[in-house]
Design a protein around this nucleic acid. Structure first.
Lengths: 107, 107
DNA sequence: TTGTAATATTGCAATATTACGATACAATGT
DNA sequence: ACATTGTATCGTAATATTGCAATATTACAA
């Protein structure tokens, strides 16, 4: 078979994996870092910054957005993407509890 | 083109993405959680626990291992996988600094 | 309304990941 | 030596991801 046997895993494992996927591409990491640096942000700026085409950036933004990590305000015909800090802190907490669990490992 | 334009991104972005990829599959999350719970661990146990075939688990273990997250001691003909806590803490630090950067975002 | 600038969507090609059966390899027990 | 048990590798199929050109959509300005 192929690549989709996700239903056999626990909700917690799936949640963490879904979050990790957002960060699992350097373009998305760079995009997030860039957005957090800016007060406001226009997609075209990101295109120049990251060096990928506009459709590709738009696609990555959608992935980030679907995870709930972005709040977007319209500002003229350009978007102002901001990081949804509340949602982001949920991410952080999930990851931290995962990290804490793993740190208890002893050989 | 296709899926490989990784050279245009910063080292930091690539590093974070590489780490995130390890956690970007629920099977690997479950495997890591399972290993950390055990004192010692035999691969076949994981197979029963996770519900994937032995070759698939072995493949996932390789991904985790290549990231440097495992220390393996041989114990008879079965392996004892343990989490490499030092390496894991490097992961944590990279992620935390990334998280801290993103939290400074204000809309 | 027509033009313009910014972003989103569609369609497709290239590549990567996931999964497993078959098989090979390694260590132990008899 | 031979069988048994546990793990790794190979080959292959299914699916997912990444990337872009072409096109559509949206919002504003004149």
């Amino acid at each position: 078979m192929g690549a989709s046997k996700l239903n056999i895993h626990s909700k917690n494992s799936n949640d963490i994996a879904i979050i990790a996927k957002v960060f699992a591409h350097p373009a998305r990491v760079s995009i997030l870092q860039y957005i957090s640096k800016q007060e406001s942000c226009i997609c075209n700026d990101i295109v120049d910054e990251i060096g990928l085409s506009q459709p590709t950036i738009s696609q990555h933004l959608q992935v980030i957005s679907k995870a709930g990590l972005l709040k977007g305000d319209f500002k003229g015909n350009s978007l102002c993407y901001c990081i949804n800090v509340e949602r982001f802190q949920e991410f952080q907490e999930l990851f931290n509890s995962f990290f804490i669990k793993l740190n208890q490992s002893n050989c």
